[in-house]
Design a binder for these strands. Structure first.
Length: 457
DNA sequence: TCTGGGGTCCTAGGACCC
DNA sequence: TCTGGGGTCCTAGGACCC
């Protein structure tokens, strides 16, 4: 077996550059929702030492002497660009596993067009993706996914590879591993890397020379798999149709929320998003969990983070069923938080004068909905405790229609009313949680909104 | 003032059963 | 004094990924 890993170079930044070439060659960063912190950096920004996760407000303080272009994230644009890249890959190889928005594994030996010259094939593919979409990609080819991934890092790092690095022979493998820092290996995180380096294991090659049994003892079978993969034994499998076991939608809020009513709007919106994700992968969930937490950076405020779950009588996937369960779970959370507040108030009153913090209202900064106990929709077991079958079918049909309309007319054309707030007094348009998220520096929707299409003058 | 949003897998330990 | 042995299931927490 041969795997190719195709990885978009600095994906988010590259998407922005395709439509705004003036950003080429400059230090560029892309920010998280609400322009919170740095989630993507151009090579130039990395070279300046801008760390990932840096809060946006610290960017100017930390780098006063450099011009760094900061953009809000435009996931609509990135998702669309990613789809274009993946579609080109599918034209070349029948089996493409999309691993994340910017990465895909290609199973080369499954292909009737399996290349004989991997290097030339990879270079041509990278050039084609660049030419057709504007997205620079690096390709690594190897006998295992871990080695393919490692090869792609070489392709990215050294221009002499012309965007494609191949590890096939034993000499190539040893040479690559000897040059590769252990912490950069796929599957070796910060903790393990620190421990290994302390023991003098600096490169991937050093790691492969440890006895396998020792690796298994200290790093469990996950570590052993990485060890085997580096040796060239293919053992990390990607299921053909990976159906997620849990689905989560969560966000931080632009402002802190204090009331149950204020929380219920975003929670309903998150629940509806989870329901839509369930339907897209043709599955249903029986457990709905809501979690909420205060702002951990505000040490001056009361801190609390809690979650509560509701089990449905039978698995569900329609918006109303999932949303109703989420609101129920939210109410449980609110009840728990009120009890905690009362307890801490009693504690406060029992403290000697001047000691302790007087509890105020809790200010929620982040919340989310998780759906779990997921089953394929065709394995639905009915229960007489569930809502009547006729009603359930109607709710499902309704959600399916909403999905179709939203696919055609744009997300959130139709949505559950509990996810809406009062209308904007100026435009008369309903306010949604999504359009309350701040994106003050966002680029236009170049590829998905006709009003934003670029003009050539 | 301002600090992301998703996921997966593995293990240890407790509860429970016979 | 002395306290089975094995199995399963569940959960929390750690570690990793992008």
């Amino acid at each position: 077996m041969r795997y190719a890993l195709v990885d978009c170079d600095n994906c988010y930044v590259s998407c922005e550059r395709v439509f705004n070439p003036s950003l080429e060659g400059k230090a560029v960063v892309v920010l998280s929702n609400n322009d919170g912190c740095v989630v993507a950096r151009s090579a130039e920004a990395k070279a300046l030492g801008v760390p990932e996760g840096l809060p946006f407000f610290q960017l100017a303080e930390r780098f006063p002497d450099h011009e760094i272009h900061a953009l809000s994230s435009n996931y609509t644009l990135y998702g669309d660009m990613s789809r274009r890249v993946m579609n080109i890959l599918r034209q070349h190889v029948p089996e493409v596993f999309v691993y994340s928005i910017d990465e895909a594994f290609l199973m080369l030996e499954e292909s009737p067009y399996a290349p004989t010259d991997f290097k030339a094939w990879g270079e041509a593919l990278a050039a084609k993706v660049r030419k057709w979409t504007g997205m620079p990609v690096s390709i690594g080819i190897g006998p295992t996914k871990t080695l393919a991934k490692l090869a792609s890092k070489f392709a990215k790092r050294y221009p002499a590879y012309h965007k494609c690095c191949v590890i096939v022979t034993e000499t190539q493998r040893e040479k690559a591993l000897a040059l590769f820092p252990i912490g950069d290996v796929w599957g070796i995180g910060r903790r393990h890397a620190a421990r290994l380096t302390a023991k003098g294991i600096r490169t991937a090659l050093d790691f492969t020379r440890l006895p396998g049994e020792q690796v298994r003892r200290s790093m469990s079978v996950t570590g052993l798999r990485t060890w085997l993969e580096l040796h060239g034994h293919d053992c990390i499998t990607l299921d053909n149709l990976p159906r997620k076991q849990t689905i989560c939608t969560s966000r931080s809020f632009p402002v802190m929320l204090t009331s149950r009513e204020a929380l219920s709007t975003p929670v309903a919106a998150f629940a509806a998003r989870c329901a839509a994700k369930l339907r897209r992968q043709q599955s249903m969930a029986q457990v709905v969990t809501v979690f909420a937490s205060t702002n951990p950076f505000r040490e001056d405020l009361d801190q609390l983070s809690l979650s509560s779950s509701v089990s449905l009588a039978a698995p569900a996937q329609s918006d109303p069923e999932i949303v109703r369960a989420a609101i129920e779970a939210l109410d449980q959370c609110i009840k728990i938080s009120q009890r905690r507040l009362e307890d801490s108030y009693i504690e406060y009153q029992n403290e000697p004068q001047g000691m302790g913090l007087k509890p105020g209202d809790l200010r929620w900064k982040r919340a989310g909905v998780i759906v779990s106990a997921i089953v394929p929709e065709w394995e639905l077991q009915t229960s007489f405790l569930d809502i009547p079958p006729v009603l359930k079918q109607k709710l499902q049909a309704m959600s399916a229609v909403a999905d179709k309309i939203n696919a055609k007319m744009g997300d959130e054309t139709i949505q559950v009313a509990s996810a809406l707030r009062e209308a904007d007094p100026e435009t008369g348009k309903a306010l949604t949680f999504r359009n309350s998220i701040l994106h003050s520096r966002r680029s236009p929707f170049y590829t998905t909104d006709i009003r934003d299409i670029i003009e050539v003058l």
